[in-house]
Design a protein around this nucleic acid. Structure first.
Lengths: 181, 181
DNA sequence: AGGCTATCTGGACACGTGTCCGTTTAGCAA
DNA sequence: TTGCTAAACGGACACGTGTCCAGATAGCCT
């Protein structure tokens, strides 16, 4: 990805940081950056050089999960029309969010949107896939983009479990209805 | 509100804190709590006792604005059907959000939702007013509540001005379409 | 007036974040 | 092997947040 030839010790550190982060996340869903640095036996500087933000670190930790999530979009389109596929895919997202709260933070645009829409990453592409299918069908309005959906999805990361079980479903319904043509 | 007979010196401090906060907000939209305390000539303890969270402080600072916003809901219902009224009212919200970014933070449920829906405050009541009108008309689905809308509205506080001018309108449309019956 | 106490005060702390920069070292080159 | 340098290291810092508690004092009560 960004590892334009890393020095050997640097690779070790990076790997160790990820390992430690994963470990810490098994006990709590919190991830104090300085705790990670300490546990990994590196300085703050090293940690932040490898992962400039907590999101960057979480994104790497959860890369596999995010990939799974992304990959689950296409098959749904074979079984359902776009809006239904989108709805089901959002269920997957909510489910991941429920189990591993970190996944959400990983896909949050942190703050002050990176270079236009590009930063969105693979999650954005998955959403675009679903939206585009719907736009072709005429079942989804043509003026929404993945970023819009991602922005609205942000609410998932700011709800605790209790609230999520009560509201998430309904709100996701609402979003999907909103993007319908 | 909560001032069950405040001691005279306490009242002075409280007033001074608010004054200082308002002042600081004229220059930037940031509001470091310790800066407020310092500028008001009180200790951290005093500041936090009066306003346990930044939101509490902002809520008080912007109380008048929030009241205006809330009051603008009812008249809209005289002129428009509920969904249109809601849409226009959300425009007002977005406009306030654009001008005074603090207003948003003031109505954010901070974290870990206070006692059920009640905390929502007057903004929630305004939304309920609009939603209820729509539910009576049959133009708004009966299973959404003001909290749902408020949660979705959270996106406004996490967009910078540039992004807001580009997306806010469209996303608000989308939300209103979502709550339509 | 003067004492008493509930209330308020305010700064020290513990903890987190992210940056900066002097020091160390991997890995190449001679 | 030895020297060199760009890359990486890591801890000290500056700054913010929110809590805690020993001391001060407003305002009632006698």
């Amino acid at each position: 990805m960004t590892d334009r030839r890393l020095r050997a010790d640097a690779m070790n550190n990076r790997a160790r940081i990820l390992e430690v982060a994963r470990e810490l996340l098994t006990s709590t869903s919190e991830l104090p950056m300085n705790a990670v640095a300490k546990a990994a036996g590196v300085g703050q500087g090293t940690l932040y050089r490898n992962f400039p933000t907590r999101e960057a670190l979480l994104a790497e930790v959860y890369r596999a999960d995010v990939d799974t999530l992304v990959a689950s979009a296409a098959p749904l389109l074979e079984l359902h029309e776009a809006p239904a596929a989108l709805r089901r895919w959002l269920d997957n997202v909510a489910e991941y969010a429920r189990v591993k709260r970190g996944v959400l933070a990983a896909l949050e645009p942190s703050s002050g949107h990176e270079l236009a829409t590009s930063h969105t990453g693979s999650i954005g592409e998955a959403i675009d896939l679903l939206l585009d299918a719907g736009k072709s069908e005429g079942s989804i309005r043509s003026d929404v983009d993945s970023q819009d959906v991602l922005i609205l999805l942000g609410f998932l990361s700011r709800m605790d479990e209790a609230e999520a079980t009560e509201r998430a479903d309904r709100i996701l319904d609402l979003i999907v209805d909103g993007v319908r043509a």
